[in-house]
Nucleic acid binder design. Structure first.
Length: 1128
RNA sequence: AGUCUCGUAGCUCAGUUGGUUAGAGCGCUACACUGAUAAUGUAGAGGUCCGCGGUUCAAAUCCGCGCGAGACUACCA
């Protein structure tokens, strides 16, 4: 027996299947059973469990699950290990808040040990939520032995990787300009700048200053100009001007030399600025003139200017200028300073098009100057250590002249009572004005980052950091990127590609506490250093140090080298609180202390392919033999492009000269119904658990996948989910129920031999052809990582082809007649369709499909679960495109006849005599189609007519094929079209009968082929007709007396069936039928009695004059009485 | 501010290398059909293909400039 249902309870099914999976370890089996099969490698991007999962995690986890399940179906072994990202600032901030402390207090008020302990506790606080999400969503992943980034084994791999990066000589210590809060005395991470509210509108004093060019270094063109030439440059941070060492121009930007006057001193000057910005810089008091004469007069403070020359920025590159404020000179390479360099940072819309560069206080400035060999403005302090002109409290250094010494560069850094009237920026402006070096002073409002703790503006400040020299690997990384299949392509090519193009060295350092410590020890002077690559190495080094007396004992002496047991590894902790106490011995017997920073958490996650395996200490072959590397597939949100995707790629490129993932889907965001981002502050977030509970995981999964491509943003709309539940799952349920009811009645169990395709009725051949086409298409789309196309194709098949067409047409075969081959064929066909649908849909809707699969499984299909079965193979010989085409024409014709009936107001129950159909080039063998149409639309005769016969009834129109003729005739195409469209019916007919014909344009003869035009037959005179898609259908609307009676008899059948249904009789129940007789009814019944009895399973139909019991019915407004009862 | 993605019916989305009159589903209105169906069919209403300009015989599609939404990066001086 096939299981029958009373109604569809998705919730119940889901729970049952979930229990079934757990109890029978289906997930485990799906891996074990494929033990000797090829591996499909999937990497789980580790989530951080210190926040609870949101609705968007449903999206990415659904996609991940789909491809893991699909590839299992394909017969591959798909292991997937869960992992947790455990380190990082967000955790630390949570703990800080909880303990009511700030960064300064760590190591003072509270020990690093305690702090780290608290972090470790805090990090997993939502892990239960995450596991619950996996479970409820049906996301299959090994939760039992996940990798944790804080575990000793994980850390050991990271160290090994870092040591090998060091060996490649691309790990170095250097300066980086970083956001820094002088008020708080700490550097800030970019994360902290992204805290909402960090960017605030700030009003700054901006000035345009005049850098005097060294004329002999200018291009020839400009040397000829009389007088000094100044480069105008704009800045919002005048306090950085003493640190200026270069100017930047855009090579493709047009610049001009202008002769004019300084608006403050009215001295005559030549200035250089971007052509496009003339109007913005020289507005209000300035006016353009066209010759030297006019330039001479300043009228009522109106200043004339004359454009002398236009040139590309490129020509300025390498030219020099005089230092603007000559208080200091760079301690190193000063001869290379004060040059014009090129850079793409030049904004064409604001400023002057010439950017002032202070490498010590701007990140872009820093990189650009480094690239161009420009020295930063660093001077040597009394200890001969290079320092910038502003100290770490945000003050000008002592040595600064003209009263600037010790002044805060931002007024906000003073306490309120001590804040001076004039800010440093203003003082610098006035100082330069006196020297006649200022062209303009203005206020400017822009958004500027502020320290989230002190609410004061941050500075960009050079700080010590460890870097990986990723810039040196740019080529390799770009090259290897070509071999990654990105979904969508643009993320890989553009977003990721551009990012690689503009790659900067990877800053690994974080001056925080909860993370993997840098395994680097250095002497005080920094002349000797060691990078530790394993615990063994560390222990050995400690031993040396103990011998020399730098350390009193070895804190890790209980660790057994070479013992890979969890117990051994859990016995030691490699976090900062332990490592900072370790002092190592240098080659020249000097003490070395650890570089105090921890490693960027992104390195943790990017190292996950190796660290999850404890490579190379264990599982070495899995990576080296490329068994578990690179991944076949990863998937995360598009925001990970510069996050996880990047770090994975970088590490594998550096160390393994390989990509680390072959296919990647970067999914979009989940927005609310109106397209707004979901956020707690907006209050439009959706609880993933509630939504899963309410609609079921399959429905949600299907919704996410079918609604739009996963890489687009999805607007989360509950109504659509409802629709999927009703339409797809409802229909599938109904098709199954239909099958189960009748299969059980006929005791069909798929025990009979499979009926050969050639012996099946055409309708079965058709649906099997469509089914195989579907398998083929879904197979390709899965392989191309296009889940949306898969889901949509399945929807069309299930709803349109299988339910609304195949079953509708085949209905009678299931419930009428004996258990013949025809009937068996119907069962076998429907069975195959259902089983196939369950399999190909199971990656997307794993619960629902498994449930129904299990109901159908039999000796032919022995698998315990659909997820242990195999993806169906499509059979090319079953696909009959011609048949599919014919059927789609039949559908069209049916629709058209319904449409005509509606127009003529003739019910479908009323049989009609005939319909005529005109269609060009209809494939042969029409009978099958004719029979379907006849039954569907209740018409006795369907006739396909040839063109010739129809000639008199039709109107012909002709149109040209633009696609073919357009390229041939270009502009003349419209002329040809007007000529062609004027052809009369006879001429068109002539064209139909030939292959080529000739038309005349302006005495030119043009030869056209029949393919160059479309001929449409549109209309039939005197008939009720309709035309669509090149098909014309005409309906004979005359109703004879006999047809009328037949129609009425059908009306009667319908009424009886409704009563049976109302009485809840079984479909197989036979009945006795009593009808109160009348002339009207006798007329109806007379010729159709047999048919009526057959249709309604009436064993006896009795006409009685006076019927005591019964119900009243109406046909055509005539009242009569009827009584029926079960014939037991 | 820059970069990237997106913008097609009230809603969600298709729309092939540019080519005849831009489509589907949901929703709305009316009618029909139904012994699996909470379905389905037919008809109707509903479009400045975000706007402007360009290339072309021909643009929703290609290019440029805007506008709007989102992400990423952000003192991009």
């Amino acid at each position: 027996m096939f299981k029958e249902y009373k109604n569809l309870e998705i919730d119940k099914i889901t729970n049952e299947i979930r229990c079934f999976w757990e109890k029978n370890k289906i997930f485990e089996k799906s891996i074990i059973y494929r033990n000797n099969k090829k591996l499909y490698v999937f990497y789980e991007g580790p989530p951080s469990a210190n926040g609870s999962p949101g609705i968007h995690h449903i999206l990415s986890r659904t996609i991940k699950d789909i491809f893991c399940r699909y590839n299992t179906l394909k017969g591959q072994k798909v292991t997937r290990k869960a992992g947790w990202d455990t380190h990082g600032l967000p955790v630390e901030l949570v703990v800080e808040t909880k303990l009511g402390i700030t960064k300064k207090d760590i190591g003072k008020k509270i020990s690093i040990y305690t702090f780290n302990k608290k972090c470790k506790e805090a990090v997993m606080r939502y892990s239960n939520e995450w596991n619950k999400l996996s479970k409820h969503l049906g996301y299959w992943i090994y939760l039992d032995k996940p990798y944790f980034t804080f575990k000793t084994k994980y850390i050991e791999t990271i160290w090994w990787l870092l040591k090998n990066i060091y060996k490649k000589k691309i790990l170095y210590k250097g300066y980086k300009i970083q956001p820094y809060s002088p008020a708080a005395g700490t550097g800030l991470s970019s994360h902290e700048l992204n805290i909402p509210g960090a960017y605030k509108k700030k009003s700054d004093l901006t000035i345009i200053v005049q850098f005097k060019s060294k004329k002999n270094t200018l291009p020839k063109k400009l040397k000829k100009i009389n007088g000094d030439i100044y480069l105008l440059s704009w800045t919002t941070t005048p306090w950085t001007l003493p640190s200026n060492t270069a100017l930047t121009v855009g090579i493709n930007i047009d610049y001009v030399v202008i002769s004019t006057y300084n608006p403050y001193s009215f001295s005559k000057i030549n200035i250089i600025l971007a052509k496009k910005l003339i109007k913005k810089v020289l507005y209000k008091n300035f006016f353009p003139v066209s010759n030297e004469k006019e330039l001479k007069e300043i009228k009522q403070n109106k200043i004339p200017y004359l454009v002398l020359n236009v040139f590309k920025g490129e020509t300025l590159i390498g030219s020099c200028y005089e230092q603007l404020i000559d208080w200091f000179l760079p301690y190193k390479n000063k001869e290379k300073a004060f040059k014009i360099i090129s850079g793409n940072i030049v904004n064409k819309k604001i400023g002057t098009g010439i950017v002032h560069i202070s490498p010590t206080f701007g990140e872009e400035d820093f990189f650009l100057s480094k690239k161009n060999g420009i020295p930063p403005m660093l001077i040597l302090d009394k200890n001969k250590i290079p320092i910038p002109l502003v100290d770490m409290e945000g003050k000008f250094i002592k040595e600064t002249p003209y009263g600037f010494s010790g002044k805060f560069v931002k007024n906000e850094y003073y306490s309120y009572d001590k804040r001076p009237d004039k800010s440093v920026d203003l003082e610098i402006a006035l100082f330069l004005k006196k020297l006649n070096k200022v062209f303009k002073i203005e206020k400017y409002i822009h958004s500027y980052p502020h320290c989230w703790r002190t609410q004061k503006p941050i500075l960009y400040y050079p700080l010590d950091s460890w870097f990986i020299k990723t810039t040196s690997l740019k080529k390799e990384m770009l090259y290897l990127n070509q071999f990654i299949n990105w979904k969508p392509k643009s993320t890989g090519k553009k977003k990721f590609g551009y990012w690689l193009e503009n790659i900067t060295d990877w800053n690994l350092s974080r001056s925080r506490f909860w993370g993997i410590p840098l395994p680097i020890w250095r002497t005080k002077k920094g002349d000797e250093e060691i990078v530790i690559g394993s615990i063994e190495e560390l222990i050995n080094e400690i031993e040396k140090s103990v011998k020399e007396g730098f350390m009193s004992y070895n804190p890790f002496k209980n660790f057994i080298i070479g013992n890979m047991s969890e117990k051994n590894y859990n016995s030691i902790d490699l976090h900062k609180h332990n490592l900072d106490n370790i002092i190592l011995l240098s080659k020249y017997k000097k003490p070395m202390i650890r570089e105090s920073d921890i490693i960027d958490v992104w390195f943790d996650s990017g190292a996950m392919p190796y660290a999850q395996l404890h490579y190379p200490f264990e599982n070495q072959f899995l990576i080296d033999k490329k068994k578990f590397f690179p991944a076949d597939f990863i998937c995360e949100g598009v925001d990970q492009t510069r996050g996880w995707f990047f770090t994975l790629h970088t590490i594998s490129c550096i160390l393994f000269n390989s990509i680390s993932f072959k296919n990647v889907i970067s999914n979009g965001l989940v927005l609310d119904k109106t397209g707004k981002k979901m956020s707690k502050s907006r209050g439009n977030t959706i609880n993933p658990f509630e939504i899963i509970k309410k609609y079921g995981p399959d429905t949600i999964r299907w919704y996410f996948i079918s609604n739009s491509s996963p890489w687009g943003n999805i607007k989360f709309n509950i109504e659509k989910i409802e629709n999927i539940k009703k339409k797809l799952f409802g229909t599938l349920y109904n098709v199954y129920s239909f099958f189960a009811i009748y299969a059980n009645i006929d005791n069909f169990k798929y025990k009979e031999k499979e009926i050969k395709l050639k012996n099946r009725p055409t309708i079965d051949k058709w649906i099997l052809s469509e089914l195989n086409t579907l398998i083929k298409k879904t197979y390709n789309n899965y392989n191309n990582y296009e889940p949306t196309k898969v889901a949509r194709k399945i929807e069309v098949f299930v709803i349109d082809n299988l339910s609304n067409w195949y079953i509708r047409l085949s209905r009678r075969r299931f419930w009428k007649g004996n258990y013949t081959n025809n009937k068996i064929s119907a069962y076998q066909t429907l069975y195959t369709c259902l089983l196939t649908i369950y399999k190909i849909s199971s990656p997307i809707a794993p619960f629902f499909m498994d449930n129904f699969y299990k109901n159908l499984k039999n000796t032919l299909e022995p698998f315990e679960s659909v997820h242990l079965s195999y993806y169906p193979k499509y059979n090319i010989s079953t696909i009959d495109k011609n048949l599919e085409l014919k059927m789609s024409i039949a559908k069209d014709i049916t629709s058209m006849i319904f449409s005509l009936r509606k127009k003529e107001k003739i019910k479908v129950r009323q049989p009609l005599k005939r319909a005529l159909i005109l269609i060009n080039n209809f494939p042969p063998k029409k009978n099958f189609i004719i029979n379907i149409i006849k039954k569907e639309v209740n018409i006795k005769h369907i006739k396909f007519l040839s063109n010739k016969k129809m000639y008199n009834f039709t109107k012909k129109t002709i149109k040209i094929n633009y696609k073919l003729l357009g390229p041939k005739f270009g502009k003349n195409i419209n002329l040809i079209n007007s000529l062609i469209s004027k052809l009369n019916k006879k001429e068109i007919k002539n064209i139909e009968n030939v292959y080529f014909f000739i038309i005349k344009i302006h005495d030119h003869k043009i030869c056209l082929s029949k393919k160059d035009v479309y001929i449409l037959t549109e209309y039939m005179q005197g008939w009720s007709a309709i035309c669509y898609n090149g098909i014309t259908v005409a309906l004979d609307t005359n109703i004879s007396e006999d047809l009328k009676k037949e129609g009425l008899s059908r009306e009667l059948i319908n009424k009886i069936q409704n009563i049976r249904k109302y009485y809840k009789y079984k479909i197989t129940d036979k009945i006795l039928l009593y009808i109160e007789t009348s002339k009207f009814l006798e007329k109806i019944i007379k010729n159709n009695k047999k048919h009526i009895c057959e249709e309604t399973l009436t064993s006896e139909l009795i006409l009685i004059k006076n019927l005591k019991y019964g119900i009243f019915l109406y046909i055509e407004n005539k009242k009569f009485k009827i009584f029926l009862k079960r014939n037991l």
